[in-house]
Write a protein that binds this DNA or RNA. Structure first.
Lengths: 192, 192, 192, 192
DNA sequence: CATGAATGAGAGTTCATTCAT
DNA sequence: CATGAATGAACTCTCATTCAT
């Protein structure tokens, strides 16, 4: 209740405007009034939906992170081999990062700067649990190297962020062959 | 004794203050007056050494990048096998990122946001040439997979940034074992 | 009752403050924050009504110029002899310059310095058209010397600015006799 | 003494730079460091020759005014008729204003704004004494109308400033014919 | 005599946020 | 629920001036 009268459209427009502006101009050039203008609302209206600028950023981050992980695990089924499960998830993530580059770029900016609250960041990490579970299983089964999940992440998922940003800057154009090469590199780096 | 010249100490203090503040508060919260205060000079003094805020950021980036690459290639000798050469460079970079984490963290923030001029960024990339040359040689000799240098970078060097940031946030503590595991993962991902 | 709109009162207060400060301290000592203070608004509020300082000055100039010319031609009727028409306009202008000295002084400062955009200046000149038309008629009828309008202006209207400034500085006090003498001088200088 | 070691060249360069900058950019955009740069000296050096910015402006004004009046009266001989004397002076002034427009423009800006100290202004006026004396003689002889010197000045000399500024702005180009027309207008307006 | 380095104060402007409606 | 107007605080940057050399 209380919240029921608020328009989800306006909230969405604000989130979308935030992502667009941060992606195009960076955080330092993203002001509340620009966000309001792009979302076609009054600056004051933002404060009906969010506590303040920090809150808007945090919630945007969490929302985008949720979209990201939902997409990542949509086709994943825990009832498969570790290798196949990993490939499934990895390729979904790769696809997301390279196709939904708006959201991916926003996440990359957040993950490498101290703009998002630690709390919100933790909230975002929780969503990755299925992948961590899979890795644990892989280690037990002797399929994946018995090393820290941070290392596994660093060598399989994180490279995709770098490739996405590079593509975004026009440094390279990734096709299916590249993706397959990347997958092979990722799997080689962590397989037992 | 050269007190009449612009003081290199002041310039250095400004660069250092910039790095510290960006690392701790992010770009968006790093103002010229805070930089001045931390460097113990007047705000106006900054403009004796740098054209404007953007210039200060660019020059800081280039300077830190130069320190980084100088360190990376200091012990490297082109007259070795590709594998040994790669290990030498990789371990220097790993050491830099994990020990000189201030500078490394600053570079990571710059590399993932649109704060640095494209021109300054290109200038920073040039310094990596010896590594790219080594990779080309490795591909010719059939020691390294014939894939894009972007992929090679994404799977060998870039993961170190992620690990450094994670360590910086207190998420993990990297010891010699981790480094060796990371190196193995890196090499496995790119060796032919 | 229209309190939701931008307040014309505030705009007027800003224009008035600008005139007062420029008159008393000159352009170079008229800052935005002083204007704000005198108009009893926040510095930021100025920017709701004007784009920037230049715009504020331009608009103030145009506004004052409009008041000036409206006054000048208020009693003028094109259906009279050239001489009578000229006397009518001239005396209105004289009256304005010597009675509404605040506005007149401001205009004099603007007209003699490069502070106002050329475009705004041109806009201000347009308002004088009825006088120029009258002069053209006078030349055709052989009542006024066939010389450039700039000369006519220089010898009839412009002297009033000098007299106004001199009076403002306390150098002299102009009474009705002076005005009549001035008018005679003006007319003698241009009559055919 | 004491002053003897100072370079008159530097002082002149500073005066010249001040005039140029004020003419081209206006007072509000003429800073001490720009003046120093244009005069090829250090900002600190200005303060060896002038007390402060105000003093520099005042002294520049007085100096230019002196040049102006020296030129105006150079060919004037008190032993002539009033009319001839007046014509001599007037034409010299006209020539100055239209040929040495740099200096004339600077004076015009000063005379219409409150930038120059009242004291310095008075000092500048004193130099005009020969003209005022001539006018007094003219009134006594019944050749010139018995009206205030301010009025005489307003209708004979001041119009030249207006014409000079207009020419400077490109609004008109004054040739010998215009000058003769202007002189006739001036004389007609004050002759008894 | 002359300097370049240095500065506190203040310039114009934008910001995140609030409030009356 | 939503707004445009309004604002104090803070921003980047420049100023007139001083000082050690």
């Amino acid at each position: 209740m209380g919240q029921l009268q608020k328009s989800i459209d306006k909230r969405n427009a604000l989130i979308k405007a935030t992502i667009d502006l941060v992606n195009n101009n960076g955080f330092h050039a993203t002001s509340m009034s620009k966000i309001a203008k792009m979302a076609n609302v009054s600056p004051a209206t933002i404060y009906l939906y969010f506590d303040n600028k920090q809150d808007l950023l945090n919630k945007t981050y969490i929302e985008v992170k949720a979209i990201y992980t939902a997409y990542a695990f949509e086709t994943y089924n825990t009832e498969t081999t570790v290798e196949l499960g990993f490939e499934t998830i990895w390729k979904r993530i790769a696809n997301f990062k390279l196709k939904d580059s708006k959201n991916a770029l926003f996440l990359a900016q957040c993950d490498n700067t101290p703009i998002i609250d630690e709390q919100s960041r933790q909230l975002g990490i929780k969503h990755l649990q299925p992948l961590l579970d899979l890795w644990e299983r892989g280690k037990k089964e002797g399929v994946i190297k018995p090393i820290s999940n941070y290392l596994l992440y660093a060598y399989t998922i994180n490279p995709l962020s770098f490739l996405m940003i590079s593509q975004q800057r026009g440094a390279l154009k990734l096709d299916k062959t590249h993706i397959q090469e990347a997958y092979t590199a990722a799997w080689n780096s962590i397989k037992a």
